[in-house]
Structures are given as C-alpha cells and as structure tokens.
C-alpha cells in the first residue's frame, strides 16, 4: 500500500466525519435511541437491581451490535451513484475507500459505545473493571462492527437484493464479536484471563478487513 493509498484513506475519513458532524445522524438519532433501548429493558424485565446488574452487560453489547451494524451499513450506503462515480474518477482506490469508510464508522461506533456505556453503567450499576482490557474490547468491537457493516453495505450496494441481505450477512459474522465482547467482560468480572476472547475478536477484525480490501474492486463493479 502506497503513500497515495493512505492519503486517500485520510481523505475519506475526513469526508465522512465532516458529513456526520453536519448531519448529526449518530449524535442526534442513533445515540439517543440506543440509550432509550437500554432504558426500556427494565420496563420489560422488571426493576430487580441484582437481575439488571447481571444482564446489563449482555444487554449493552446486544444494543451495541444491533445499532452498530445499522450505523456502519447506513454510512456505507449513504453515497449516491454520482458521488461514488466522482470519487472513483478522482482516482479513489476502492480498497482505500473501504478502509476509510470503516475507520470513520469505527470512530463513530466508539463514541456510541462510550456514551451508551455510560448510560448502562448508571442505569444497571455495572462495574467498570480492567479498564485497559475493557478499552481494547470496545475498540475491537467497534472495528469489527464497522468493517462488517461497511462490507455488508458494499455487498448490498452491488446487488439487486438490497437491504434484505443485511441480516443474513451480518448475523453469522457478528456472533463471534458478541460472544467475545460479553465473555471478555465476564472474564474481567470474575478475574479470568480474557486473552483468548480478545484474540477471537481480533481474528474476526482481521478476516473481515482482508475480505473487505480484497473484494473492494469486484464489489464496486458488479
């Protein structure tokens, strides 16, 4: 990958974050809805503090997964064909486009995770332990979901099946991320090593990143 490649990645990240700052889709729509989803759970299961404390981390990660994929798929599909054509004809390498979109979605997802995480901590009285490992888990989850959502968005854009494909594509690949994140938190809580779960998440991130980069060109043309 050349210097030009990384310049293009940086240009795409700057574009996406600039657009998000002006539109505020994640800040003003997704984050509040994520927080509301967390608020609704006690209404469904009751206000038993011990139960909420026990299921809180799992509920948090389910909400992060669901909203996270929606954010990343939405960002990947937010460009019109003329906008995509203009980028291509300015010389955008499809792989650089994939990496740039994934990084910008990852940044937004990390913000989502942190804000909704604070709500979860306050609402369910979840313990914040093993902060360096917890941060690593959050970063890997954000990266994995962003890559997965961006790849799914590219596949959806390239086929006539449209968004009906999203659940079929996302569900199997997000399971290892969800498992890794929830098991890593449980490991931290009970003082077990979480290295194996972190490696599972990192492996998913690497696999989806490689698939995304290698299929960027063919997907753009189908």
């Amino acid at each position: 990958m050349t210097t030009g490649f990384w310049h293009q990645v940086a240009a795409v990240i700057e574009r996406d974050l600039l657009r998000e700052r002006r539109r505020g889709d994640v800040l003003w729509i997704t984050i509040p809805f994520g927080a509301i989803a967390l608020l609704l759970i006690p209404l469904a299961v009751g206000t038993d503090a011990a139960l909420l404390r026990q299921i809180g981390p799992g509920m948090y990660w389910v909400i992060v997964m669901l909203f996270g994929v929606l954010v990343a798929v939405g960002k990947a599909s937010s460009e019109t064909l003329p906008q995509q054509d203009a980028s291509s004809l300015a010389g955008l390498d499809p792989a650089a486009g994939f990496v740039g979109r994934s990084v910008s979605s990852g940044v937004l997802l990390l913000i989502f995770e942190l804000v909704v995480g604070l709500v979860a901590v306050g609402l369910y009285n979840i313990s914040v332990i093993g902060i360096p490992w917890l941060v690593l888990t959050l970063v890997l989850a954000a990266a994995g979901l962003a890559l997965l959502g961006t790849l799914t968005g590219a596949i959806v854009n390239s086929t006539s099946a449209g968004t009906t494909l999203v659940p079929l594509l996302v569900a199997p690949l997000s399971v290892p991320l969800l498992l890794g994140a929830t098991q890593a938190y449980d490991g931290l809580r009970f003082g077990h090593s979480i290295l194996s779960w972190v490696l599972v998440m990192a492996t998913v991130v690497l696999i989806v990143a490689m698939i995304g980069v290698l299929t960027a060109r063919p997907l753009q043309e189908t």
Binding site: R19, T80, P82, Q83, D85, A86
Partner: peptide
C-alpha cells in the same frame, strides 16, 4: 477522465 452527470456528484453537507 472527468464526468459531469445530470445529478451533481458532490456532497451537499460540505
């Protein structure tokens, strides 16, 4: 290669 279509290929938020 430059192309200008009938729908502008620019980002309205920028």
């Amino acid at each position: 290669i430059g192309m200008i279509g009938h729908v502008p290929g620019i980002y309205p938020e920028m």
